[in-house]
């Protein structure tokens, strides 16, 4: 029974901004240890969906539940404490703090809360995990672009989340960095983490995701195994149509 019940479930989740329907009746489940790709053309509502799950926005209708408990109306901080942790589309670090302190923010206040020496040690371990061992003393401003992304990922991991939301984490990386980035996310996958990946990079989706949900104009147009979904004519039309425009 428990094995079948999804970690995260969306039912009829809808978000309207005035007259615009940004997300329309989204339904999908994320199973334990699954890496789910959330893809679709620009403006199709992927980031809004992520914002609804993380509590940055609240849906106009529908329910979101974490292990069967509804979290639809909870504020962002409570959702974070219950174990859903996210990165931001444009990296957001804490500019006045060191790299280690940035990561500690996740360790101290997140799903599993630590303090003092335990938090420091955990933050250091997370930095090592993302490939930034012994760089904790650096200022955020001294980092390269991919390293800022690594710090953000380390902050998210430091809270021991049940579900990780990565919002275009691979966007803007150069080819070498991209390889490193994909390897890093693959290692998360190998650890058995539950991840929702909003991505544009198709190679990454093919090699990382178990399943995909495809969105266009706020609606789910396909769901299933990656290769099936990507060869679906409607998905191809959604993408090509977007590129023609």
């Amino acid at each position: 029974m428990r094995a079948q019940s999804p970690v995260l479930a969306l039912r009829g989740v809808t978000k309207r901004f005035g007259g615009l329907v940004a997300v329309n009746a989204m339904d999908f489940d994320v199973a334990e240890h699954e890496v789910l790709g959330l893809i679709g053309p620009n403006g199709s509502g992927k980031s809004t969906t992520l914002n609804l799950i993380s509590g940055a926005l609240h849906p106009t209708a529908g329910t979101i539940s974490l292990r069967g408990t509804p979290i639809t109306e909870l504020p962002a901080q409570d959702i974070a404490r219950r174990g859903i942790s996210r990165t931001f589309q444009l990296v957001r670090l804490l500019p006045s703090m060191t790299v280690a302190e940035n990561v500690m923010a996740g360790a101290v206040f997140g799903h599993r809360r630590r303090w003092g020496g335990e938090a420091t040690a955990h933050a250091e371990a997370m930095l090592e995990r993302v490939g930034l061992a012994r760089r904790g003393h650096l200022r955020v401003g001294q980092l390269t672009y991919i390293d800022t992304k690594r710090v953000e990922l380390a902050r998210v991991l430091a809270s021991d989340p049940k579900v990780l939301l990565l919002d275009e984490w691979l966007a803007g990386l150069n080819p070498t960095e991209l390889e490193e980035g994909i390897a890093l996310i693959r290692s998360l996958r190998d650890e058995g983490r539950t991840v929702i990946l909003v991505e544009h990079v198709m190679d990454a989706i093919r090699s990382l995701c178990d399943r995909c949900v495809v969105m266009a104009s706020g609606t789910k147009i396909a769901e299933g195994g990656v290769s099936d979904v990507l060869s679906d004519p409607e998905v191809i039309r959604a993408y090509l149509g977007d590129e023609d425009a």
Partner: peptide, 24 residues
Amino acid sequence: SRLGFALRIIGDDEEVARHSGIHT
């Protein structure tokens, strides 16, 4: 204290603070 650390994070970026689990 944790409160002090939380406040430094809020001062830097309230959105990150909330998403890190801080009751701002």
